[in-house]
Design a protein around this nucleic acid. Sequence first.
DNA 1: GCATACTGGGAAATCGCTTTCCGGGAGGAT
DNA 2: ATCCTCCCGGAAAGCGATTTCCCAGTATGC
Lengths: 326, 326
Amino acid sequence: MVTLEDVARHAGVSLATASRVLNGSARQVGAGLRAKVEQAAAELGYRTNVAAQTLARGAGNVIGLVVHDLVDPYFAAIADGAVRAAEAHGMVVMVGTTHRDPAKEIAYVSSLGAQRARAVILAGSRTDDPSAAGLRAELDRYRNGGGRVAVIGQDLLGTDTVAVANRSGAAALAEALTAMGHRHFAILAGPPRLITAVDRCEGFAAALPGPAPQIIHGPFDRDGGHTAAHSIGPDVTCVFAVNDVMAVGALAAFRERGIRVPEDVSLAGFDDIATLRDLVPALTTVRLPLADLGARAVELALADDDGPTVVHVEGEVVIRESVRAR
Amino acid sequence: MVTLEDVARHAGVSLATASRVLNGSARQVGAGLRAKVEQAAAELGYRTNVAAQTLARGAGNVIGLVVHDLVDPYFAAIADGAVRAAEAHGMVVMVGTTHRDPAKEIAYVSSLGAQRARAVILAGSRTDDPSAAGLRAELDRYRNGGGRVAVIGQDLLGTDTVAVANRSGAAALAEALTAMGHRHFAILAGPPRLITAVDRCEGFAAALPGPAPQIIHGPFDRDGGHTAAHSIGPDVTCVFAVNDVMAVGALAAFRERGIRVPEDVSLAGFDDIATLRDLVPALTTVRLPLADLGARAVELALADDDGPTVVHVEGEVVIRESVRAR
DNA sequence: GCATACTGGGAAATCGCTTTCCGGGAGGAT
DNA sequence: ATCCTCCCGGAAAGCGATTTCCCAGTATGC
């Protein structure tokens, strides 16, 4: 491999000069030498050794992104936004998938620390349970080492946060559905301790004027929605699934049992996943700018402010065919 | 940050010994010292500096994955498989997204070379055009630097390859559809120079006994399928979209125009995207083990064989409701 | 019993780059 | 003309590991 020293020798300059020319430095280099170095680098096919650079500089150009599951379009969209934003800053993204295992989340943060990653982005809300303490400790350690952390979801860890307005989004949805004449709701509420799920569920329920909704807990994925849908009571006219993927599961369950949407029951989700836009009936939902979430988290983590900054992102209610007025 | 030297001093041993204990080495260390080092590391909260390790060893623990678009569930599934496989080998994955820009693909390979990435995985077939020469050159350079390359798609670059049997999969589909009585086909064929698309299209067409199918080119994505579907001739009874996402676009187009699937026309796709399984009507398609594709590419790249190995992966025809017998 | 492995420990040389510090020459002010 | 700044080039000291030697101590072969 061609090293910087080779380039310097070939150009007849010192190592220092070559470094200053090729890998951005505050110091200027005269035009003549600069040209010579650049030409030498081109001729020799020089490529920076990032590991050496990271070691010498004490900070790398990696941004870590930790998600639950890349196949879930929610996270895929966030990852996409993060990769784009990182690229714009000349950084690269390393992704880790935890498949909802808190231990793996910790392991990734630790590994990213070892990589001297510039920042780590945590997407996907953690549950509220004690295992979060380990994560917290690992994150503190990482930050003490000079790393930046940004979280997508809710402001829990005292870090930079892209906070999603789950409560108010769900409330707005509830109001819209109420305005369309619905009074009897069921909520496919997801895990009882998953904060995102809880916020959406509570925000929705609190905005309802009528009788309390039926609340059915279960996993936060497609199959969770599918299973939960089987427990829906007879007088329910409108079902709210706390995410789109669960709504899809519910839709399948309804179809299997001959229940028509929206004729027999209305259905709404949350997120507005692009891949699901062509579903029939089109899903009423709360649109979240998912790619933006990822991108803004990167911006946040890269900005050198002091205190943790919290950015709030609102959802937007989108009424589509899956809901019918009563 | 705690360095290895701190640990060595704290444990009262030499740097060499500490290194041998903490970061796998061929040489043995006596049980007593070993324990002391491990304890010192734990007490101090030592974390390996990967950059320094990479520099000293001359090879890192990063695997680069280059895809077109993470939001496309096809690539998301591949990425998922790759991340899992990498993890099993103690490596981490860096993803780059090209959004179908060949220049970015080259840039990523270059950047991964600078990272001393252990391997790079290229997913998503390239077009057949001359710009591929630049990629080839960059890949050669990367390999000369000791990197390994694996490609998912077709065996074009003389590297390790996970080859997808697009032709035979499409042919099997064509036979199945023919057996169901269809004779007049249209193919939503994607870009005329995209090799994956061409292979599927030709494989399908070649297996047809009847009249030549109508071939409609267009982009390889949802909107491409949507647009292309408008040009389908009147006597076509069955439409083959060269991937599932295009099929979804076509389905939407049919629905807009009041054409029923499968009553008026049958429709089939390719890939069997999991996120799309709940579509109505369920899509007939050729199932590909997408996550496996990613995982096997990683295995291939990490195995230290000499010559390029080519693994062939077959698809499996899955008949669902979107096709009706004639 | 003596020469010959073999074992496990440590000192020190790398790995490739960044950056501080030093020094010489040019330009401006007095 | 002199002194003080700038400006820019180079020498060299790190950054934090790995790994090659070198060595002493012990085990082994005859």
